[in-house]
């Protein structure tokens, strides 16, 4: 136990480590995000992530925005296990034929008003997998999409900036 405590104190809060350029960017993006969340969503927004066929690269980066460095919880962003509690669906990957039905169901289970964000080149356009017998292409081929965050995969910073962009213009939907 003592070692655990020691490690915790030694590590400190790493959310804003080293005064480097990147850290300032994260901080800036985070504060903007927080402002948007506070204003439009009464301080917290709940996200359900759906992998509709990705290569799992995009998932890694979505995981990363939860790590202590980016720590998106701090800005009021939570990930939930159930679409029923979600305000926003974060969808990755080209939609595969085998996931199409599951994605539609998840969409229907999410209460309105809701947002859908397509994350990664694949979710935006189908990416390298294109439109084939197995891949239906971008997410908008299956459910309506409110915002797109391109990149292969988008970096955590790009993800946070993308969410801010969406939330800043959110009143159109409310």
């Amino acid at each position: 136990m003592i070692r655990i405590l020691r490690q915790i104190f030694r590590t400190g809060i790493v959310t804003e480590p080293l005064p480097d350029q990147v850290t300032r960017e994260i901080q800036a993006a985070g504060l903007k995000l927080e402002a948007a969340v506070r204003e439009r969503f009464r301080r917290s927004i709940t996200i359900r992530q759906v992998d509709a066929g990705s290569c799992n690269g995009c998932e890694l980066e979505i995981h990363a925005i939860n790590n202590p460095i980016y720590n998106c919880e701090k800005y009021g962003i939570h990930f939930t296990a159930s679409p029923r509690f979600a305000d926003l669906l974060l969808v990755t990957g080209p939609v595969t034929r085998n996931m199409e039905i599951a994605l539609r169901r998840t969409y229907v289970s999410t209460p309105s008003p809701k947002f859908v964000v397509a994350v990664g080149d694949c979710a935006c356009t189908g990416g390298i997998f294109g439109e084939t017998y197995a891949s239906l292409g971008g997410v908008d081929k299956v459910i309506p999409v409110d915002a797109r965050i391109p990149g292969c995969p988008p970096t955590p910073l790009q993800l946070m900036q993308g969410l801010t962009r969406l939330l800043d213009g959110a009143d159109t939907k409310k």
């Binding site: 990957g93 080209p94 996931m99 599951a102 997998f129 084939t132 017998y133 197995a134 891949s135």
Partner: peptide, 11 residues
């Protein structure tokens, strides 16, 4: 399994 079959080998 098979939900994320994207037709990679064919692609």
């Amino acid at each position: 399994l098979g939900y994320v079959h994207k037709g990679i080998e064919k692609r």
